[in-house]
Amino acid sequence: MKKSVILGALTVAGLAAGAAAAGTLDDVKARGKLNCGVTTGLVGFAAPDANGNWDGFDVGVCRAVAAAVLGDPNAVEFVPTTGKTRFTALASGEIDMLARNTTWTFSRDVDLKFEFVGVNYYDGQGFMIPKELGVSSAKELDGATVCIQTGTTTELNLADFFRANNISYEPVPIETNAEAQQQFLAGACDVYTTDASGLAATRATFENPGDYAVLPEIISKEPLGPLVRHGDNEWGDVVRWTLNALIASEELGVTSANLEEMAKGTSNPEINRMMGTEGSLGEMLGLDADWAKRAIAAGGNYGELFAKNIGEETPVGLARGLNAQWKNGGLLYSPPFR
């Protein structure tokens, strides 16, 4: 602390926010704010509205973590990051966690020294085309001009896909989703490729979404999830189990509507353990007993978050698909709260 005071005076600003070396969890608690890295704007996942309030599926995860740790879902500082800045922002400690539809890959996990705490959206890379082109399969895209967001895994998948199918294409690298949209709508590229969820979210903002189609091919696995720095396992556990609490609560039928009731105690011991009426899971995490209750209260359980932000009722209109609970044939499977 002493050091930060001196440094603060030195920089004549106190802009240098001092942070103790103890651990991210203590930092966040001391700061009273969670710094959460999100995209610069992708409707449904994370986008600021006209008043500057962030909203979306990834944002929901940040808010849940903030609620669990700090008791206030609004105690989040959203840090917009591009594909380029996101990893440095996390590595340098500028943000505490990154919830920016980031694909879990080997090299990011091992080489870049990050820890993916789970998957909040199982995705795959798809292609969007204007219907008037009359293309029905990605294999017919020989010679097409393709818009891609740089700095993402989609760029590499794309090269692999076209190479494997021995067809040619012309990449148009683009920094942000907004620009990709602009280029695609203007016809500067024939195809826009990114995660299928991103395609749906982008298409939702078009004036005539019906004029555009998403091709059936999904050319990659894109498990998207929140990540934290390698080596800070306490903090990693908090984020991981907050995410798991959101998933498990859907499985167990805990929603924001019946939350209060459930928190009073139920006949299901797992719910009771999660809600903190039984056992001491919160304490083990370094939080208080009703951390999970607050996390769910922040924006509802996983299913509610999904439905509210990107579900079929919303303009983004994504089906649950792979992201259904395992009982319904999806991949969402939270380890038990025990």
Binding site: L42, P48, E179, Q182, T205
Partner: peptide, 26 residues
Amino acid sequence: SVISMFDLVGMIRGPILASTEWNGVY
């Protein structure tokens, strides 16, 4: 704006052009 700070150009290229309401007002 290139390093994702929202100055005037960053605001235009980021949140405003990406929003559903104003997508396409260059």
